[in-house]
């Protein structure tokens, strides 16, 4: 464990707390893409198949349970909770995310570290996580004005993988045979998707203005 990775995990946790806060405090999920949340459930379930087979540390197991539990809770809330599901902007959340699932799975069948069930699903979860934010980013552009909590949620979500990139650079230099080129390349693509969001987020923060994404 290094400071970059710990910062990344904490930033990831903060993004989930901000989203839960927004949904429970405002009893609204307006501006949130249900499709992105569903993709994250698939990402965590596919990635943490080793939850009960490989014990790495208490921290690792607890965080995996928190990520799986919170992502399921958010999807349940947006689909089933009477008050919340009414605020879901279904007509704005139109990204065909099934193609993202299919594409990531096909890519995982072609590009993986070992051709085993667990490794294929791990690579699938890595590729899917890189594109999972797309429905949310498209929805933000469609909905024009972005409320603060939603903007902060996406910001922390993008920042967490940027910390992980620093973690991979650090591990590359400190651990002799450290190689996670799948996660590294995919993490770079994932963070690149946030580039324009980060730009507009910084502009809005600098001008102390509302976050506006160009349509």
């Amino acid at each position: 464990m290094n400071i970059f990775r710990f910062a990344g995990d904490m930033t990831h946790l903060i993004s989930i707390v901000v989203l839960l806060l927004k949904i429970y405090a405002t009893k609204s999920c307006s501006g949130i893409s249900l499709k992105t949340q569903e993709l994250y459930v698939i990402v965590f379930l596919a990635r943490y198949l080793d939850l009960f087979t490989d014990f790495i540390s208490v921290y690792n197991t607890v965080m995996k349970l928190v990520f799986i539990g919170s992502s399921l809770a958010i999807v349940w809330c947006m689909r089933m909770h009477r008050a919340v599901k009414r605020t879901y902007d279904k007509e704005l959340d139109t990204f065909r995310h099934y193609f993202l699932v299919l594409g990531s799975f096909v890519l995982a069948l072609l590009l993986h570290e070992k051709f085993t069930f667990q490794e294929i699903f791990w690579a699938f979860s890595i590729y899917l996580e890189a594109v999972a934010i797309l429905p949310q980013l498209v929805m933000l552009q469609r909905s024009g004005n972005v409320d603060n909590l939603t903007g902060q949620y996406v910001f922390f979500l993008g920042a967490y993988r940027a910390f992980y990139i620093l973690n991979w650079i650090y591990r590359f230099f400190t651990e002799p045979h450290f190689s996670r080129w799948i996660a590294c390349l995919s993490g770079l693509v994932q963070t690149a998707f946030y580039a324009d969001f980060f730009y507009y987020y910084f502009i809005s923060w600098k001008n102390n203005a509302k976050l506006q994404l160009p349509a």
């Binding site: 990775r5 995990d9 990831h12 080793d50 490989d54 790495i56 690792n60 965080m63 995996k64 990520f67 570290e113 070992k114 085993t116 667990q118 490794e119 791990w122 992980y164 973690n167 450290f178 996670r180 996660a183």
Partner: peptide
């Protein structure tokens, strides 16, 4: 035992 490809990250 460390898992096959060092999946020690989240």
């Amino acid at each position: 035992t460390t898992p096959p490809s060092a999946k020690d990250e989240l």
